[in-house]
Design a protein around this nucleic acid. Sequence first.
DNA 1: AGATTTCATCCACATTATGGACAGCATCCA
DNA 2: TGGATGCTGTCCATAATGTGGATGAAATCT
Lengths: 255, 255
Amino acid sequence: MVVQGAQVVGRVAALLRLVGRKPEGTSLAGLVRESGLTRPTVHRLLASLAAEGFLEHDSSSGKWVLGPEIFLLGSVAAARFPMEDIARPSLRRLATETGESAFFSIRRGNETVCVLREEGSFPVRSFVLHEGVRFPLGVASAGTAILAFLPAEEQEALLAEWAEHAGDFSDGHPADVVRENLEQTRLAGYSVNPGLILEGSWGMGAAVFDQQGRPAWALSLTGIEPRFRPERQEYLGKLLLEEAHRMTARLQGTS
Amino acid sequence: MVVQGAQVVGRVAALLRLVGRKPEGTSLAGLVRESGLTRPTVHRLLASLAAEGFLEHDSSSGKWVLGPEIFLLGSVAAARFPMEDIARPSLRRLATETGESAFFSIRRGNETVCVLREEGSFPVRSFVLHEGVRFPLGVASAGTAILAFLPAEEQEALLAEWAEHAGDFSDGHPADVVRENLEQTRLAGYSVNPGLILEGSWGMGAAVFDQQGRPAWALSLTGIEPRFRPERQEYLGKLLLEEAHRMTARLQGTS
DNA sequence: AGATTTCATCCACATTATGGACAGCATCCA
DNA sequence: TGGATGCTGTCCATAATGTGGATGAAATCT
């Protein structure tokens, strides 16, 4: 998987992903911490990425943010990944129908990345999840919904080295809790995150399947605990599954 | 401008831009030609970019295309560059009103990059311009409209080394023709490209200005020569200027 | 005003990326 | 059928490239 003689490419990619996590930008020190690289190296790579227009350095805040070239390349790439067109209507329906915030996440390797958000009308909202945020598979409702429907051996591979895979999240997500959660998800069809990431901040998710029948994306809803009591879960789950089925059908149909 | 000790970053950036030019993808050999790098180097960089998800290698066609990570980062970056929301309505109006195809391009250094397209109803369409295509400033109607309203010294800097700047386009665009064209553009407010890139394929453009009053974007229309006769140019130019003014006002107002 | 944290830059060193060379496939043509 | 052409993928000795410890300046906190 790893290509010889391209160390920097990996480092650059990691830095771009880290910067992309926070729309408001990240400081040099933060990136040094999160990347594990030395400061001079991070600084040089950031500066050269900025010279290429892939990043920008907000001189007032000193933070680094994604630059115009990323936006431009992204617009071109979006033609091959018409997620916006396909997912947005479902998100709108979910958000207006339930009042919660609705999200569309995409699987990328052993992570999920949140791509789209649609705010609900309910006045208390959680900001744990937003565009660009990444979670390890099995963490958060979207990643649980996806992991639950991956081939058993892939699930086992991740669970076998769970602490390493889940990183900072392994504290709040012990492997046995996750196992139980995946089992529940397979039974119900949808996943429930009972505030495991942030107390009181609940979520539910349902997987969307690609043409090969693999769970590649997920729809999810987030909100506060009182809005996710058991009696309402069934209703929310039904809505999520409905929209997930609709998207899956649409994606099977295309091409 | 160029950062020391970051050769690869520049190379990677150049390759990504080259790949982004053609939505259908580019072959290794093509990228070797266009980048001026050696084949092993290009291959290694492409392979490692693909391992990171920044590119994908279509194994049937053997071509390299932009990958999912670019799409994901692009979605995050799009929040800082809300061009779609602001430009799309103007493009719609231009396309429906005129029947020609309408485009929105953005200035990036000494180039313009086409970001958005809206097809017109007229059944003969040119495909010289599409999302991701880059032209040197002063080439094509969008780049002419922008260049014409840059500070005189910046214009002169480019015209002074025109052959180098315009590259392959310098044949069809001699410096004195461009100078005359810029003059005309300043007089009329809008630019006209009388089939200089491809015979019979005409275009007209108008610049959109940022908060500092600098021409940073452009709206343009393209079509075949009979649709751009002098009597119609005035009408098309008026529409372009109207929409460009509207966008400029909207952009001044925001923030 | 001293302590602490963050940012920017230098430069000797060796790790890392480079590219010439080789190998494997197609396709085309004599 | 053979060999000429054009493409992709890989190896590895070489040196050019990127690295990171160290230093200093600047900003922020106590």
